[in-house]
Design a protein around this nucleic acid. Structure first.
Length: 225
DNA sequence: TGCCAGGCCGGGT
DNA sequence: ACCCGGCATGGC
């Protein structure tokens, strides 16, 4: 067997190695229980994690950091508890949609959901109003341990920057397929990789001056992205 | 001060 | 099949 040299390694693997070497393990998803993962996944939609942390704290303080409790309290009370996460009335409705659906369809049993075949479980999650592709995959991966690659805005931006997808590309499934085609279906690997991409986006893509310090700067890229 | 954050929905072309 | 406004708080 001819050993594979560095330059012929898939770009997606090179990127992972560079990010992990530079940033180390990210310990995602930051939560104590899988229910907390699910709640956080909805709260963090288009919202900085910092604001989500406060909302999680409020829920914990009110003993409402479980799906059962969220299912039983009033939506407007829930909205007040999660106010700091922004778009709080929308998110309160979405959380209620989720818990109502889990109760009626799976008798409130998360194990029943995650026991489903992966595509079936994903379809189920997507049927809930307020759960889109990224939220569904984050729940599957970080709460269920299902090896599904999570694609977010930073992921597409970084792939555009490195010519891996077209300059205007943002197709969720296409981006997801790039990772799932190249990497073994390992939930720990997927989880670490997505966390590294988000951390990279936060630290190196926000301000122009920071992007030259990106661990991926040695790879071919378009500086204007 | 304005702009954005670990999206998604619903209505309009 | 896209495109867009709305949702809303806290941080820089």
């Amino acid at each position: 067997m001819i050993p594979m040299d560095r330059s012929s390694r898939p770009i997606v693997r090179q990127m992972y190695d560079l990010l992990y070497a530079a940033l180390g393990p990210q310990h995602w998803w930051p939560a104590d229980t899988r229910e907390e993962v699910i709640i956080g996944a909805i709260l963090t939609q288009n919202t900085s994690w910092k604001n989500v942390e406060r909302a999680i704290g409020s829920l914990r303080q009110a003993d409402c950091l479980t799906l059962r409790r969220i299912n039983s309290i009033a939506a407007d009370r829930l909205a007040e508890l999660i106010r700091s996460s922004g778009t709080h009335r929308v998110k309160a409705d979405r959380l209620k949609n989720l818990t109502r659906w889990l109760q009626s369809r799976f008798d409130g049993d998360l194990d029943a959901l995650f026991a489903l075949e992966r595509r079936a479980a994903r379809r189920e999650l997507l049927s809930v109003t307020g759960i889109g592709p990224e939220t569904a995959d984050a729940i599957l991966l970080y709460a269920g341990g299902v090896p599904t690659f999570v694609v977010d805005a930073y992921t597409n931006r970084i792939l555009r920057r490195h010519y891996i997808i077209s300059p205007d590309g943002s197709d969720y499934g296409a981006t997801q397929a790039i990772f799932e085609r190249t990497l073994p279906p390992d939930d720990r690997l997927y989880g670490e990789y997505h966390a590294l991409l988000v951390e990279t986006g936060k630290r190196f893509c926000r301000k122009r001056a920071e992007c030259e310090r990106c661990p991926l700067v040695a790879l071919p890229h378009d500086p204007s992205i």
